[in-house]
C-alpha cells in the first residue's frame, strides 16, 4: 500500500496554488497541536505523570498527607520482597496464570473445536457463552458469593447429587480459596476464549482441510497438523490477554474475600490496595505498584519479543481492516 500520508503534504495537496513556506509550516504546527494536543495532555497528565509519581513516592515513607520528606531509599522494595504475604500474592498471580494456560486454554480450544460446526441453536449458544463475559466482575463476584456460601445453593446441589463429601468451605479454607477463584474466573472468561477461537476457526479455509482429507489424513491429524497451527496467532493473543488479565486480578477477589483468609487469595493488586489505601501507606503502596508494573511490563515485552514475533506486525495493529 502506498503511504497515503505522502500525498497529504502541502505541496501536492494544493497544486497550482503557491503558498509561502513559513505560514504553511506554522499552520501545520497549529493543526498538529489541535489534533494531537487533547489526547497528549490527557494521556500525559493522567497516565504518565501518575506513573512517574508512583516511581518517586516509592522511595518514601509517606501516608499521603503532610510533607514528603522521609526518604527511605529502597527500603519499601526490600520490605515487599521479604513480606511473605506479598510473595504469596505474586505466587497466587502466577498460579492463576499457570492454571489458565494448563486448564482454561485446552478446555476452550476443545470446546471451540467441538462446537465449530453447523448445528441448531448455534447463535443461542454463542450468546449464552458470552453472557458472563459481558457482566461486570462485581456481578460475577456477588453472584458467586451467594452461590458458594456455606450450605448455600452449590453445597446443597452437591449433596443432592451425592457429592456431599466433596463440599468445602469454598471461600474460607486457605487451601481451597484460590482454586475456587480460578473456577469463577473460568466461568466468566471461558466463553470469550471459545468465541475468539471459533472466529479463528471460521477463518481457516475449508480447502485446506479437504486437501488433507483427500491425502488420507484422519480428522485428528487434520486438526493437529492443519487447524491448530493455523489457529496459532489467535491462541497466542488469547494467552497474552489472559496473562495480563491474571496479573491485574482485583475486582473478583476484593469483593469475594478481600484477599483472605489470611492472604490466601491475595493478589498483587489487592495487596497494593490493602496497604496503599486501607493502611494509608502511600509510599509503600507505590513501591508495590512499581513492582507490579515492572513485572507486567517485562512479561509483556518478553511475550511480544519471543511469542508474538511470528505474527507479523504483532498484537493489535492489524485490526479493524
Amino acid at each position: 500500500m502506498p503511504a497515503p500520508a505522502d500525498l497529504a503534504t502541502g505541496r501536492r495537496r494544493r497544486p497550482g496554488r503557491p503558498v509561502a513556506n513559513r505560514p504553511r509550516r506554522l499552520r501545520k504546527r497549529v493543526e498538529l497541536t489541535l489534533f494531537l494536543g487533547p489526547a497528549f495532555v490527557l494521556y500525559s497528565a493522567l497516565v504518565l505523570v501518575p506513573m512517574g509519581m508512583a516511581a518517586y513516592y516509592g522511595f518514601f515513607n509517606w501516608t499521603g498527607l503532610g510533607p514528603l520528606d522521609d526518604f527511605v531509599g529502597f527500603d519499601n522494595y526490600r520490605r515487599a520482597f521479604s513480606d511473605p504475604v506479598f510473595r504469596g500474592s505474586v505466587q497466587n498471580n502466577a498460579i492463576i496464570v499457570a492454571l489458565s494456560m494448563l486448564i482454561q486454554l485446552p478446555l476452550a480450544l476443545a470446546l471451540a473445536l467441538l462446537l465449530n460446526r453447523r448445528m441448531r441453536g448455534r447463535t443461542l449458544l454463542r450468546t449464552v457463552l458470552f453472557a458472563p463475559y459481558v457482566l461486570s466482575e462485581v456481578i460475577t463476584a456477588v453472584t458467586w458469593v451467594l452461590l458458594l456460601q456455606p450450605s448455600g445453593p452449590v453445597d446443597h446441589a452437591m449433596e443432592t447429587l451425592g457429592l456431599g463429601r466433596f463440599v468445602q468451605l469454598w471461600l474460607a479454607d486457605p487451601d481451597v480459596v484460590l482454586y475456587t477463584m480460578f473456577v469463577v474466573i473460568t466461568w466468566k472468561y471461558i466463553g470469550f476464549g471459545i468465541i475468539l477461537f471459533l472466529a479463528g476457526l471460521v477463518a481457516i479455509p475449508d480447502e485446506l482441510k479437504e486437501a488433507a482429507a483427500i491425502d488420507g489424513a484422519s480428522s485428528w491429524q487434520t486438526t493437529r497438523h492443519i487447524v491448530l497451527p493455523l489457529l496459532g496467532p489467535t491462541v497466542r493473543i488469547w494467552a497474552f490477554l489472559s496473562i495480563i488479565g491474571a496479573l491485574q486480578l482485583f475486582d473478583l477477589i476484593w469483593i469475594m474475600t478481600l484477599g483472605g483468609p489470611a492472604g490466601a487469595s491475595s493478589t498483587m493488586v489487592t495487596y497494593l490496595i490493602d496497604h496503599g489505601f486501607k493502611r494509608n501507606e502511600f509510599g509503600y503502596g507505590s513501591a508495590v505498584a512499581m513492582i507490579l508494573f515492572t513485572l507486567s511490563f517485562v512479561v509483556a515485552l518478553l511475550y511480544q519479543r519471543f511469542v508474538l514475533r511470528r505474527d507479523t506486525e504483532g498484537a493489535l495493529t492489524r485490526m479493524a481492516g
Binding site: Y43, V47, M51, A54, Y57
Partner: peptide, 29 residues
C-alpha cells in the same frame, strides 16, 4: 494522515499505554 518528524515515536508513546495497568497509577491519581 499527517507527515511530521517523530510521528512513529509519538504513536509508540501512545501504544506503550497498553502496558500500563490502572492499578499502578491509582495512588498518585
Amino acid at each position: 494522515r499527517f507527515v511530521f518528524r517523530g510521528r512513529e515515536a509519538l504513536y509508540t508513546f501512545f501504544t506503550l499505554g497498553l502496558l500500563f495497568p490502572v492499578g499502578v497509577a491509582i495512588l498518585p491519581l
